[in-house]
Design a protein around this nucleic acid. Structure first.
Length: 664
DNA sequence: ACTCGTTGTCATAAG
DNA sequence: TTCTTATGACAACGA
């Protein structure tokens, strides 16, 4: 919702709103169904007031405005039956005077404007102010009901009430105050009408609070380029409101199909579908299903082929509300963010026609996300790690870069892009398509789809990022965002604690509902692993993740072993060093001992020498001078007393003889 | 704020 | 060719 602020402020917003509504097709039709059409002159004027480059019916997959009065149910008050009311021109002027932040172009817009003009100016400002702040149709309506209390017959209330009132209130009001207005509109009556009354009773408190919020929101609108941190500071009330709306699912199953062919006015196949509107509206996956229908009929991609790409199990999972309507392989839950990326320059029809293969691939992958538990996804988003990331970070490159630059951590480099399978985008890694941070808000356009949208985010994240890194630094849709989806922060925190011990791959595997444990995946022998992959119905995404998990797991073990080995080697080398040092010391000691022994021996020999000489006598009986004579041992063992002079001369001759022999 | 050890991951080479 | 293992390098994280 916050993301829409910049749309309104910077881009005029209407195109986005239109596309948004178009993409959320069934939802828009629901609104139309509930509301009366404007008078013909007015709608024409409204239609072209904004100077659209092409007719409204070309901008939107909905029936042309001209068909509105004929196809839509008649308002109990006969509003639709009064097409020529002389208010139109004045209405438009009033609308303009209201400072509505966009020019009405589609029938919905026209109706909104008209409704506003028909009501009080304050209420209108509240409506559009809230609309601009909330950034979603549902919010618009909701706001309008709060801003203009007391207008019991105002169709705005009929539209908004279901989103705002609680079931208890509805029941109470139903018993107390019968309102026939909406009942005429095809039997859907009950809840909506009751809520209308509720809204009247609801009041000033909320109204004043709401106005404050609106003013705050308007201020924030001016900061269209607010950073992610600001985005994270989502007001509690927004979350509450969202949760409220979400909890109040409107069931239109009992509503008969519209009398007219709702797609009569369409000149394109964008909305050429056979889906029963009432059925579609009654399901949480309206958007998905609607887009499925569109894809079947208009997308260039062969639906059959796409169908074949999606494993049966996921089909079952993806169509959590109405399996019979869900077409295989075409869940477009993640379409909004993608479209948002192109929205500024392209019409919805262009989008429908021009979805390229990449987008469709992603969309196809999105089907996987439908089976994800939003909480699981949320856990991934909340993942502290990073490198990876899924980060909420979306996979969109530009977004990624931005967030990365803004974040202190910034990690996702990943070449991941190239990497495999990576599913994560986030990492953005260059990845294919990703979703803007804005897309996060987009998901709140239709609360019935937000869980799916989160899944998409997760999915896209995973899709593009090989590393599965999570961007911790990037503002993630934390528990706050999940509270939008009706998850209490406590529960989210609890799960967070629960999963805290899980590794990233474990969390990813859990999020993708991979039926094997990470440990199994990693430890399994190759043959078993391959047979396991072939035995189970797994999507490419799952297989990719499993292989990555296995690769990372094995590499992790290898790295651990490698480090352990390296440490062992180091330890061994250190031991060797210490051993050698000890040996060296020992040898040193031995050497010293030997030297000592040698000295002792020398001394003993010297003493013995002198003792021997002291006992020797020459021929005249005189003692032999040890300085003039030396003792020599002959070959036969005889001891001879030889004068040193002879010994020196003999030694010299001996040395000469040695040299000669060496020369030769 | 910086350093250091640990850990996970990736890229690459080798078997 | 594919898979596994080993290892260097890098980054994140916590102490």
């Amino acid at each position: 919702m916050k993301l829409l602020k910049p749309w309104w402020a910077a881009d005029g917003g209407l195109l986005h709103l239109t596309l948004l509504l178009s993409l959320a097709g069934l939802r828009v039709d629901l609104d139309l169904y509930l509301l009366p059409p404007p008078p013909a002159p007015l709608r024409d004027e409204l239609l072209w007031l904004g100077g659209p480059t092409r007719p409204a019916h070309a901008l939107s997959p909905f029936p042309a405005l001209g068909e509105w009065g004929r196809t839509g149910p008649q308002h109990p008050k006969g509003w639709a039956s009064d097409p020529g009311a002389p208010l139109e021109g004045q209405l438009l002027r009033e609308v303009r005077a209201l400072g509505v932040p966009f020019i009405p172009r589609t029938r919905v817009d026209a109706w909104l404007v008209h409704s506003v003009a028909a009501g009080d100016a304050d209420g209108a400002r509240g409506l559009f102010g809230a609309a601009s702040s909330a950034g979603e149709v549902g919010a618009n309506v909701d706001s309008s009901s709060q801003a203009a209390p007391g207008s019991g017959g105002d169709p705005r209330e009929a539209l908004s009430s279901p989103l705002a009132a609680t079931e208890e209130e509805e029941e109470a009001e139903a018993a107390a105050e019968p309102t026939a207005q909406v009942q005429d509109a095809g039997g859907r009556a009950g809840q909506d009408t009751e809520v209308v009354v509720n809204q009247q009773n609801e009041t000033v408190d909320r109204n004043s609070q709401h106005e404050e919020r609106v003013s705050t929101q308007k201020k924030s609108l001016q900061q269209s380029n607010e950073d992610d941190d600001k985005i994270a500071d989502k007001p509690d009330w927004e979350a509450e409101k969202t949760t409220e709306s979400r909890n109040e699912e409107i069931s239109f199953e009992d509503i008969p199909p519209l009398p007219g062919n709702i797609s009569d006015g369409m000149n394109s196949s964008a909305y050429d579908c056979n889906v029963n509107l009432s059925q579609a509206i009654s399901h949480d996956v309206n958007l998905h299903e609607a887009m499925l229908v569109c894809s079947n009929n208009t997308f260039r991609r062969n639906p059959v082929a796409r169908t074949s790409q999606v494993p049966e199990p996921f089909l079952q999972l993806s169509s959590h509300t109405n399996p019979e309507q869900a077409l295989p392989g075409s869940d477009l839950t993640g379409f909004l963010p993608l479209v948002d990326n192109q929205m500024r320059n392209v019409t919805s029809q262009d989008l429908l026609y021009d979805l390229d293969a990449n987008i469709l691939d992603e969309i196809n992958l999105m089907s996987l996300a439908t089976s994800f538990d939003p909480l699981d996804i949320s856990q991934l988003f909340e993942e502290p790690d990073s490198d990876s990331g899924l980060s909420l970070n979306s996979s969109h490159n530009s977004t990624y870069i931005t967030t990365k630059s803004n974040s202190s951590h910034s990690t996702y480099d990943e070449g991941a892009i190239g990497y495999s399978s990576d599913l994560e985008s986030q990492d953005l890694e260059g990845a294919v398509g990703g979703c803007y941070p804005e897309s996060i808000k987009l998901c709140h356009v239709d609360h019935r789809n937000d869980s799916g949208f989160h899944e998409n985010l997760e999915f896209q994240h995973i899709l593009h990022n090989h590393t599965y890194h999570l961007q911790p630094s990037v503002p993630e849709p934390s528990s706050e965002s999940f509270s939008w989806c009706g998850k209490s922060p406590k529960k989210s925190r609890h799960l967070e604690d629960t999963d805290r011990n899980l590794s990233r791959d474990e969390r990813r595997a859990k999020a993708l509902h991979i039926p094997f444990s990470v440990d199994e995946i990693v430890r399994m022998p190759v043959d078993s692993f391959n047979s396991m992959l072939s035995r189970h119905y797994l999507t490419d995404l799952q297989v990719s993740l499993i292989r990555d998990i296995r690769r990372r797991g094995k590499n992790k073990v290898a790295a651990q072993n490698c480090r352990k080995r390296k440490l062992d080697i180091i330890v061994n080398l250190e031991d060797d060093v210490s051993n050698l040092q000890a040996k060296k010391e020992t040898l040193k000691r031995e050497r010293a001992q030997c030297n000592k022994a040698i000295d002792i021996m020398k001394k003993k020999l010297h003493d013995l020498y002198h003792d021997v000489f002291s006992m020797l006598r020459d021929d005249q009986g005189r003692p032999v001078n040890p300085n003039q004579y030396t003792l020599q041992c002959s070959h036969d063992g005889a001891i001879l007393i030889v004068p040193k002079e002879l010994m020196s001369g003999h030694k010299k001759e001996a040395q000469k003889g040695k040299r000669k022999s060496e020369r030769h």
